[in-house]
């Protein structure tokens, strides 16, 4: 009754669009990645150079450093988002007057365009017009200058990302929590489990698919973040994440060949990471009782 051909037909518009605008550019990048190509070099045009771009990138400290920074950014940002998002969602499962107002307010940052988020945070944290450095200095005697201290720039971008994306995590968690059946929780309570045990043995397993999918989507987006951080700190030391490093290599430096090869490796790392998560989500692990 369900002819696979119909299935393919239903899937085809999606596949066509993605092949055209997703896969075709990928093939082009794959091709360019094995060439030396800088339009402002003495002999412009593509020159095949085999693995030279990759040879260069495994020794490129700036690139490796950017990968490390991105990893730190992603881990800290996503980790905090998950914890905060879970706590907030948990708070939102209770009923109290004004709940929906708080929820709506909490959702607002999600709606701000990343480039505007970067602009707002720049306005908040640049000394001279930003209130944050001013009050930190006055109240806590802290020197806060994201231009002078790379660590502060990194932390600022993490906090900015948390501000922007926690609402998304809260919403998915809330959806996940509201879908958990009541009986197992009550049963566990009756059996004398404490709060933590209920959370660990009952709530968490039910939340796992939502949790992993959320983390999955956040990881992808965090790794390719450009606009927000670009607007905030321009990608100086401390915020030169891989996405921004690629941007600098491809645009101002017009080193298309090398930029493409870095993109390929970044894509490779992202895919491997996400694939492992995907395996975890789809529960294909051995010995797991579905």
């Amino acid at each position: 009754m369900r002819n696979p051909r119909t299935g393919w037909l239903l899937l085809s518009p999606t596949l066509i669009i993605l092949l055209l605008f997703g896969f075709a550019p990928f093939l082009y990048v794959l091709f360019v990645g094995f060439n030396q190509w800088n339009v402002f070099s003495a002999d412009d045009g593509l020159v095949f150079n085999g693995l030279d771009n990759f040879r260069r990138l495994v020794f490129d400290d700036d690139f490796l450093h950017s990968v490390g920074l991105t990893a730190r950014f992603a881990i800290f940002a996503i980790g905090s988002e998950v914890v905060l998002g879970f706590v907030l969602a948990q708070m939102l499962t209770r009923n109290f007057p004004g709940k929906s107002l708080f929820r709506i307010i909490h959702t607002l940052p999600l709606m701000v365009a990343p480039i505007a988020v970067g602009a707002i945070w720049r306005l908040l944290v640049i000394p001279g017009f930003g209130p944050v450095p001013f009050f930190l200095d006055r109240w806590f005697d802290l020197k806060y200058q994201i231009g002078s201290y790379p660590d502060q720039a990194l932390w600022t971008s993490v906090i900015m990302d948390v501000w922007h994306w926690t609402p998304f995590v809260t919403l998915t968690m809330l959806a996940g929590l509201s879908a958990i059946p009541k009986e197992p929780v009550e049963q566990a309570r009756v059996d004398g489990a404490n709060r933590f045990q209920v959370f660990w043995y009952v709530t968490l397993p039910f939340l796992r698919p939502v949790l992993l999918t959320t983390v999955f989507i956040r990881i992808m987006d965090a790794i390719r973040t450009v606009d927000e951080v670009w607007m905030l700190a321009g990608g100086g030391p401390g915020t030169r994440f891989t996405g921004i490093y690629i941007w600098r290599v491809v645009f101002p430096r017009t080193d298309y060949g090398y930029g493409s090869s870095i993109s390929l490796i970044t894509l490779y790392l992202t895919i491997v990471l996400c694939w492992l998560l995907f395996i975890a989500i789809s529960g294909r692990r051995k010995g797991e009782v579905e």
Binding site: P25, Y28, V29, V226, T242, S260, T266, L267, C274
Partner: peptide
């Protein structure tokens, strides 16, 4: 399952390098 996973890899591409082929297209 593999199609399902491949679909999402479209979202992972770092945009900078992919702008060039897209521009040409």
């Amino acid at each position: 399952d593999n199609i399902f996973f491949w679909l999402i890899t479209n979202r992972m591409a770092p945009p900078a390098a992919f702008l060039l082929p897209l521009y040409i297209m």
